[in-house]
Design a protein around this nucleic acid. Structure first.
Ligand SMILES: [Mn+2]
Ligand SMILES: [Mn+2]
Ligand SMILES: [Zn+2]
Ligand SMILES: [Zn+2]
Lengths: 143, 143
DNA sequence: CTTACAACTGAAATTGAATATCAAAAGCAT
DNA sequence: ATGCTTTTGATATTCAATTTCAGTTGTAAG
């Protein structure tokens, strides 16, 4: 799982002529060890604690590379913090976002995905990706 | 249509004890005259050209009021610009966003909306609102 | 093992959207 | 008209994110 991701990034680096650096290895390790939907700042602080030398800019740059390489996905919620989640090959999910406690529930719905394809086809539109976020209150926050 | 919106905002203002000001009237007029999905900066520039006195902050503040009043909706795409679109009472739509030419196609799909309700119900989640954006290439940009 | 050079890094500066501040102006109930 | 409160807008500030650039590092060739 983790090795597979590292291989993915190695292959990506090779294909792009990128170099292998200590910083990228460390950032990938720590990213893979975080929970889903980690914010850049959260990740940066976690990295700092074991590797004080690594800079802000490098973390931002490297997360963009992970996204390009297909092992991370950018998430923009409504809190001004960009988050990244882990991409699992062949899987896709969307989000229920609780505005009460900020928790995020993931879900998959094959029928919705199919209908999206149909909508796109009806407009001659070629889908690259999509996002769907449902905002509201989770079971805990409702009562 | 436009009169109805103005009434909506008047009612909202009254209910909140807000005052009626020249600036809010102008901003509402010009907002209602813009295309869908106008960015704050676009709107601000349009306002400036006929009303040089009106400030940046007022435009931001007033758009938030429109959103609260239920006649505008905030849209965050991936270009770092907050956009606002017109809300038509009783209607809802989502977006196909072309990454080639930045055009936006609106669509409605009642079945998808129903399925979202079901997903939420399955998780005991109470929906307040949602957004769905499908990114890709429009018919023109495909070829 | 050098050397050469492009890629990479990180501290610091910069950008840019959005918000906060606060004195002056304007709305409104009396 | 008066008095009080809201609103405004120039300006400052915030904060995430990007850019800059001099120094460092990876790597391929000699
Ligand atoms: Mn997720
Ligand atoms: Mn729209
Ligand atoms: Zn919750
Ligand atoms: Zn297009």
């Amino acid at each position: 799982m983790i090795l597979e991701k590292k291989k993915m990034f190695n292959d990506f680096s090779a294909s792009k002529g990128l170099r292998s650096t200590r910083q990228r290895d460390i950032i990938l390790d720590i990213f893979l060890s975080t929970h889903q939907h980690v914010s850049v700042e959260e990740l940066y602080l976690k990295i700092k604690s074991s590797n004080p030398g690594i800079g802000h800019a490098t973390v931002y740059r490297t997360l963009k590379l992970f996204t390009e390489a297909g092992l991370a996905r950018e998430i923009l919620l409504h809190d001004g913090q960009t988050r990244y989640e882990h991409v699992v090959k062949g899987e896709h999910h969307d989000h229920l976002v609780c505005t009460g406690c900020n928790s995020i529930i993931e879900f998959e719905d094959e029928t919705i995905e199919k209908l999206q394809e149909e909508v796109a086809a009806r407009h001659g539109f070629l889908i690259k990706n999509h996002k769907m976020e449902i905002y509201g209150l989770c079971a805990n926050c409702r009562r």
